[in-house]
Design a protein around this nucleic acid. Structure first.
Lengths: 336, 336
DNA sequence: GTGAAAGCGCTAACAG
DNA sequence: CTGTTAGCGCTTTCAC
């Protein structure tokens, strides 16, 4: 890798001039500029980002921490962020927390060493604490929130989505609707549960605690929870299930299949978050879809906005709508 | 962010000693070391990776370029690489080429500015050229190869996999087996086609060019190709389809559904690469599974190995096995 | 075992 | 418009 010194030498100018010709062309005479450009071209000069950032005391990188890149929803978030960052000439450092607070803490520490200009994070349970000890780093919370009222957040209308899902089920005639929800220390889980309960009480029904199961967002937890709910005595067993996240829905589908329940004849199912398999599985799954890519885009735009000046502006809280997509996993309850 | 100067001041030593205490503890007296450690702790000192790398003239970062992070196969590759890198205290820069040579070129350029110690790349058609102009950067080609015999490559047994898929279909009695293959400038596509043709000729059949369609690896191409193949006159139309990649398989399934063909009664289908939707779709898809995560791990281990000394060693070419997973999308051909 | 000093590659004053 | 100089934060000689 050739340095700016070599470019300067070849173009017969000082390094300062070479630097200017490359970064602020208007400050340099046309002829010199051309000589420098040409030299840079010949040497395939690529500026050393480390040296530049060190000198300027700022980088063009942002950090992104998602909780599971294998989850297509998070992959989409990441792509939205990264594409947007790239458009603005920023580089993204992507980390996985795998829902583990220590991994997240480590990611933040590593990140910090690389002086990112900002951080976008899909929080886990430990995030608020990790963030509290942080310097003046601008942070955007994506999809989930830590509860810090100072934070800029980009989320989805979880309450509305859960409400729509439940109302849809209610409208089909279901009375005993079970919910498989995520961990109670994750904001999306509690919001979705709230939407579910709201819809229920609006319909004059009380949420039966026995019909609510909490799990850790993984397939196995959904499987386990569904098994428990579907093992209830017939007159108490739910005729429909609303599952609060992608991976757990898989588990629920598998459990239902295993029990020989046909969807939607014996059991109706609504998932939260759409995906490839939700569309291709049999029967195609009714879901609450989320604009994942747009979520990532907005998070990045906002972060970059935060960087661009109005630091003192009030923290933005953006909420994107969800959409109920009715496919074939929901129908009227079985006659009992 | 506090600098090493502040740590040194607080510990009442020179910056040189502070640096040593932190990075080479054995070079420093126990008592001083402890003072420095404590000071670092108090200040929550995090070394500036930029400054360090600039001085040491080497980073602890590697680059990774995949062609589509939204493809679960690539997400798994990425996770394998990143987890492994992390274990070795390396940071990964992840880029998407989206199969576009220019995007790949841009990614490489950006990457270069950050002085990665090595690069892992899932090549696209332009890669070999992009790489040729590169400095002495160690490179590992992952999943696909550019054809450069000097290169270190980590791939999968594509020929064997395609052979197994085709043989499976042949064993069920199929005679007219169509193939939907990827672009001919992508190594995996040509290898898979070769395996298919080998199996056919071993069975004494000639590969009928009319039964082979090439597409650009996206769902739409698979859809289009399947439509063409299934529109052939009855006595010429394939009774089974072997689709050479994940995304295109979706397209083929959709096309078959649209034509009212029931799988596997009217049409057998084998896909290359397993995934969530392949398992949950109806009927569950017979596939050639690939060890994606392990692929990523090995690529990273190899790259790190390249860095650790034996630079002159012969280029490694590692090939991992694939596995035929028989589910329910394949069966005997319809009686015609 | 420790400190002083130099320098990685770059850009931002400051002169001229 | 251009060159000289200094210094970002760190590690590494080289002395002592």
């Amino acid at each position: 890798m050739s340095s700016i010194q070599e470019v300067a030498a070849l173009a017969q100018v000082s390094t300062a001039t070479a630097s200017r010709a490359l970064s602020r062309p208007e400050m340099v005479a046309l002829s010199t500029r051309q000589r420098v450009m040409q030299a840079a071209q010949e040497l395939a000069y690529q500026p050393n980002a480390l040296a530049r950032s060190l000198r300027q005391r700022e980088t063009r990188t942002i950090g992104l921490i998602v909780s599971d890149i294998l989850n297509p929803f998070h992959a989409l978030l990441a792509k939205g962020v990264q594409d947007t960052a790239e458009q603005h000439n920023y580089v993204t450092f992507l980390f996985n927390s795998d829902e583990q607070p220590e991994k997240e803490a480590r990611a933040i520490r590593t990140l910090l060493g690389h002086l990112p200009k900002g951080l976008i994070v899909v929080p886990t349970s430990g995030t608020r604490q990790h963030l509290a000890s942080l310097p003046e780093l601008p942070v955007v919370e994506l999809d989930r929130v830590t509860g810090n009222p100072e934070a800029t957040t980009i989320t989805v209308d979880n309450i509305g989505g859960a409400h729509a899902a439940t109302t849809h089920l209610l409208g089909l005639g279901h009375q005993r609707i079970g919910m498989i929800v995520g961990r109670q220390d994750i904001s999306t889980a509690v919001e979705r549960q709230r939407g579910y309960q709201q819809a229920l009480s609006e319909a004059g029904l009380d949420a039966d605690p026995a019909l609510i199961r909490s799990g850790n967002h993984r397939e196995a937890a959904g499987y386990q929870a569904a098994h428990e709910l579907l093992a209830l005595p017939p007159h108490q067993r739910p005729t429909a299930l609303f599952v609060g996240n992608n991976e757990m829905t898989i588990g629920a589908v598998l459990a239902a299949r295993e029990l020989g329940l046909e969807i939607p004849r014996d059991l109706s199912l609504v998932g939260f978050d759409d995906s490839r398999w939700a569309q291709t599985m049999s029967p195609p799954l009714t879901v609450i879809a989320q604009p994942a890519y747009a979520l990532g885009q907005h998070a990045c735009e906002h972060l970059l906005g935060l960087l661009g000046g109005k630091r003192a502006s009030t923290p933005a809280q953006m909420q994107l709508p969800t959409e109920l997509i009715i496919r074939h996993s929901t129908g009227p309850p079985p006659l009992s």
